[in-house]
């Protein structure tokens, strides 16, 4: 096993929400999250909305400091011994691609502007034009037609490619991709996933792929971690986790993935049967995790001491 590029060890994050009226509310957004990513590999964080998967991504791009635990990048704790040059190197190496390609590009600037700035900042002005064109070619966009366009003149898929180009421009080693395809049409979704795959294989870029679409996780990520209520329920090789989920919550989540072979009207019960089952699994999964069992090599499943009640 290679040394991990990124590793999270027991990361927790508690937010204190202060409503205008009423008492301060404590929200445990992350509880004891542990996982690691090797260079050139992808880890998919899957879960429903509110499960803490985006919070995880934001901790990695240093949006906030965790309440407990450590985040290491190439073995160094990213929140300790910070220097200006160290910060700069980290911000260069770790890039983010957001869900909404409409709001993540500045509508008043051309694509040239979006890519020129990071290229200049992190690589100087030598061969700027050539590097600019190469960056666009790397994400399968035509430099001749794309460079002078504004974001609104591009389709959603093209815009998302520009977002990836922006990350490539500075020489990213890890891209945190938060639902990068969920706002795209089905027919172009796969081509963006293929681009991510290619960047991974050809450029050795690692991905933290945050998604609720389990089929796409299986498509690009070597490893998958299932999150619920801020905790990792199960993690391991994607194939094992998705085809043979061991935790009841993972089973529930994966059973809900649309499968054209399973008709809804074949199900028994009164229609609320699935809802009741889902509620039961969720309330068990929300309890604090006591530890993980390794059910197969590198395949970890959470257990709770309360399970033996």
């Amino acid at each position: 096993m290679n040394a991990p590029l990124l590793s999270l060890e027991g990361v927790s994050k508690t937010f204190h929400v202060r409503p205008v009226l009423g008492a301060v509310r404590r929200v445990d957004a992350l509880r004891n999250v542990t996982f690691s990513i090797e260079p050139g590999k992808a880890l998919a964080l899957v879960g429903e909305s509110g499960s803490g998967k985006s919070t995880c991504g934001r901790a990695v791009i240093r949006h906030f400091e965790p309440s407990a635990g450590t985040v290491r990048f190439r073995g160094e704790n990213i929140f300790e011994n910070r220097t200006r040059s160290g910060d700069r190197a980290y911000l260069r190496a770790v890039q983010m691609v957001f869900q909404d390609p409409f709001s993540s590009l500045n509508p008043t600037h051309t694509i040239r502007h979006h890519l020129e700035r990071p290229l200049r900042l992190h690589g100087g002005t030598a061969d700027l034009e050539a590097r600019l064109r190469q960056t666009l070619a790397d994400v399968e966009l035509d430099p001749d037609t794309t460079l002078e366009k504004f974001p609104h003149q591009l389709s959603g898929g093209q815009r998302q490619r520009v977002s990836f180009a922006r990350a490539l421009a500075v020489g990213a080693e890890l891209i945190v991709a938060d639902e990068p395809t969920s706002m795209l049409d089905v027919s172009i979704r796969k081509s963006v996933l293929d681009l991510m795959r290619r960047l991974k294989e050809e450029r050795n870029i690692a991905f933290l792929y945050i998604t609720h679409d389990i089929a796409t996780a299986h498509y690009i990520a070597e490893e998958t971690a299932v999150m619920y209520a801020g905790q990792v329920m199960e993690r391991g090789p994607s194939d094992a986790v998705i085809r043979n989920p061991r935790h009841p919550y993972s089973r529930l989540l994966i059973s809900a993935v649309p499968d054209p072979a399973k008709r809804f009207d074949d199900a028994d019960g009164d229609g609320l049967a699935f809802t009741r089952q889902a509620e039961a699994v969720r309330s068990r999964a929300a309890r604090p995790i006591s530890g993980y069992r390794e059910v197969a090599p590198d395949h970890f499943v959470a257990y709770s001491d309360a399970d033996h009640d």
């Binding site: 429903e48 609720h212 989540l253 809900a256 199900a267 019960g269 229609g271 809802t275 889902a278």
Partner: peptide, 13 residues
């Protein structure tokens, strides 16, 4: 997906 399945299953019933 889980909530989606819950709701559609309910509609079918």
């Amino acid at each position: 997906v889980v909530v989606q399945r819950e709701i559609l299953q309910e509609i079918v019933a």
